[in-house]
């Protein structure tokens, strides 16, 4: 509808299909319902609750990794869990992003000195956005998602610019 305001009603817009998909991807980031620890209460449950309501931004949970775009790693990853995290990441279709939520997923957090804990989920899967906090407030998670949207936008622009240079 925003497009209507710019181009007038009943207008037709021409875009590259790739640009359209990038726009759609950015605004429908479905995350995998995969809570590990305390952060899950803030980042997944409060987030889908009525006050924070991430659905407004098109961020909604999916129960299956095969339908998800984003994996929020919400909690401490230990050696037993690491295998599952990697497997879930591999099951997600491309393009996919990972958000490391909280201190534990970023570096190991308060449990970093325990030998069974993995020092940050970036040892297992590539991470796009780190959200600090123990646990981060839902607002922080929301800001993290905005940063992820910005990143996707930037990546798309860079790709298009590279193509323009090549075509020239």
């Amino acid at each position: 509808m925003a497009l209507d305001r710019i181009t007038g009603e009943h207008s037709v817009a021409f875009v590259r299909s790739e640009q359209l998909f990038d726009w759609a991807r950015r605004n429908s980031l479905w995350y995998l319902a995969f809570g590990i620890a305390c952060c899950a209460i803030e980042g997944l449950m409060s987030a889908s609750g009525p006050r924070f309501d991430f659905d407004r931004m098109g961020v909604f949970f999916r129960a299956s990794p095969r339908q998800a775009d984003v994996m929020i790693v919400a909690g401490t990853v230990n050696h037993k869990m690491a295998e599952t995290v990697l497997r879930l990441y591999e099951q997600m279709p491309e393009p996919k992003w990972v958000v490391a939520m909280g201190a534990c997923a970023s570096t190991g957090g308060p449990f970093r000195s325990y030998p069974n804990v993995v020092l940050g989920v970036d040892k297992i899967v590539p991470v796009d956005v780190y959200i600090p906090g123990c646990p981060p407030r839902p607002e922080s998670v929301q800001y993290g998602f905005i940063q992820l949207q910005e990143k996707i936008k930037r990546q798309a622009e860079e790709r298009n610019a590279a193509r323009r240079d090549r075509d020239r």
Partner: peptide, 10 residues
């Protein structure tokens, strides 16, 4: 054991 993070040890 998927969340065993050593609360007792720490």
């Amino acid at each position: 054991g998927y969340l065993h993070r050593g609360i007792e040890k720490l």
